[in-house]
Design a protein around this nucleic acid. Sequence first.
DNA 1: AGAAAAATCGAGCGATTGCTCGATTTTTCT
DNA 2: AGAAAAATCGAGCAATCGCTCGATTTTTCT
Lengths: 238, 238
Amino acid sequence: MSFEDGLTFDAFQEEFRLGKEDFCRDVFQENRETIQIKKEKTAVKNLSRIFDATFRICSRKGFRGMSMRDLSQESGLSMGGLYAYFRSKEELLNTLQRVGNHFIHRHLETTSRKGGDARQRLRIMIKTHLYLSEIVQPWFYFSYMEAKSMSRKERDFYKQAELFTENLILKILKQGVKEGQFADQDHQLAASVIKSMLQDWYLKRWKYSKREISVDRYAEFLIGFIESFYCLSQGSEG
Amino acid sequence: MSFEDGLTFDAFQEEFRLGKEDFCRDVFQENRETIQIKKEKTAVKNLSRIFDATFRICSRKGFRGMSMRDLSQESGLSMGGLYAYFRSKEELLNTLQRVGNHFIHRHLETTSRKGGDARQRLRIMIKTHLYLSEIVQPWFYFSYMEAKSMSRKERDFYKQAELFTENLILKILKQGVKEGQFADQDHQLAASVIKSMLQDWYLKRWKYSKREISVDRYAEFLIGFIESFYCLSQGSEG
DNA sequence: AGAAAAATCGAGCGATTGCTCGATTTTTCT
DNA sequence: AGAAAAATCGAGCAATCGCTCGATTTTTCT
């Protein structure tokens, strides 16, 4: 496949070399004091098992419906083993949220600084968001679904992250109008519904996998949809 | 306010005279055998208290995070009192889901049979969905968030309901193409993202209320957004 | 190989869970 | 007013919860 911006999922995946292992390394580095395990290799291996198990259980019961015995069985670690990584169940939730958000935030911000005209930047922003959510889908899904289960402080943090993404889109739309490239619409509402369409990709995975719709196809569709609303000239495809 | 189709939220609300009381009456009628209470008036009053309390608690902790003691305290009924209405916590969840879905299904189907050209029918469908979700927002939110907590049977039921709505939209889009009114797009994907934008209205209430965006304004925005993608001639506004 | 360090284990603690049921109160009859 | 029916109550049961900690196993040293 080849698109206007040259960005494809395969290329993206290669460039960033993301994956759950990097995620777990981040968690380990940022929680060295509380995690009782010393060796990175051991920690990363078990954190990965814990997270996988958490996502698997929570996608069925939700975080509060998951018991630590459930998690122990599913992850293969003992009760005591689990508590060598997290001081409490609550801390597991918060860590998962915080590190996930931080990870996503970092990548989106890098992306948002990339130059080009508004149209290009919109394309890149949409694709980056979709690609990220494709690679670490369980994190995105978990964050969204369990935001309400968090403490007030952590929940506010999540809402702020949600608005941050929306604002990145908003800025691009406004830039487009300034450059005479985009029509002058209700940007706030537009950014909001664009966000909801981006989220649908990781929230309704069951639907899109069954229909065998690739992330690139979804991305191209979204871009076309948005551009037909915003672009004054539907210019130069392909 | 006055729109092309003459449909406004106020008018809708008046016509259907919906509200939680009708909802609770439905629950009572459909569960006469299991509910130990005889008098409708008493049952409806207490069911209303139970549901309100459930939504309030679950929006913070999720269904599995809510204990029956939480529910007892928040609703003002005793433990024994609660179990006069539901034989188990699980049954409360299923009833809430089933009756909610049935209620929504009924109204959307009635709407979908209304005549007119594709453009009009699309407008009416979007507005009806938004208006319904505005009136019984807690039900929509709860259904969406707790679908994963349900038994396989009930979960499949929810997914089917989700696809039902999508199909209603899909049919209208295809009709529009046949009538030469709509462009020939990827209807399946279009219906899917339209659904996600409709859902955003009840999932992100915190955002839209803070920004003081009315349901009518949101509806008009969505319609404009979709029509710019689909309509061959952006014809006759107002 | 033997000792020190690191990692893993799971029985058991007190608190909380979903739920029951006999006692009590309120309402509706004659 | 008094009896029958309906509605409400909450202490208490067995099961499960989050979590601890001393014992045990595995790994890494010299």
